[in-house]
């Protein structure tokens, strides 16, 4: 077993210090070490987006991110996203639009949607949304209501 590396970062605004093996993914660190289980494992290969988090304001797949590389950075998970007014609007839009079925992919979509709205604001149109969520797979909804939810949340962002 390899030596653990001590890293410091903030997650959802709170400073954390943890020791992790260098091979560990940020996804496993969040779920198993820190206990934030809103971020989901869907594939472990960056193909499904269920593990999407924000790192320094950019959305990334936490399954492809080495935990050690979180050192000194600012992480936001779905739990943190929905705690802010903008993220809460995204969550509420998903609920109201019927964009949630089994819900397993939903946290990843909510984080990515919050990032898209943060980047594009109310100019976010359905075509840009579809491209923006192409890295998030959903097996239940057929995406239509997800696009509608993000469109609605972007409108409210003005």
């Amino acid at each position: 077993m390899s030596t653990n590396i001590e890293i410091r970062f903030t997650v959802n605004g709170s400073p954390r210090t943890v020791a992790v093996p260098p091979e560990m993914s940020a996804l496993n660190m969040l779920r198993e070490v820190i206990g934030l289980t809103g971020t989901k494992y869907g594939c472990g290969e960056g193909e499904c987006g269920a593990c999407t988090i924000l790192v320094d304001g950019m959305s990334v797949n936490s399954c492809l991110l080495f935990a050690v590389d979180c050192d000194g950075r600012k992480l936001t998970t779905v739990e943190g996203v929905v705690n802010e007014p903008a993220g809460a609007r995204v969550r509420d839009a998903f609920v109201q639009a019927g964009a949630v079925q089994c819900g397993f992919c939903t946290p990843g979509f909510v984080v990515q949607a919050a990032h898209l709205i943060d980047t594009h604001g109310s100019k976010l149109d359905p075509e840009t949304i579809k491209r923006g969520i192409e890295g998030n797979l959903c097996r239940c909804t057929g995406y239509k209501k997800i696009v509608e939810a993000i469109t609605a949340a972007a409108q409210e962002a003005r």
Binding site: R91, V100, G103
Partner: peptide, 21 residues
Amino acid sequence: KRIAKLDAPDKASGKTRYIHD
């Protein structure tokens, strides 16, 4: 009517505990 799913708010907040969690 268009009724929002009862389980949707927790699911969209990352609060729902699936077996993996």
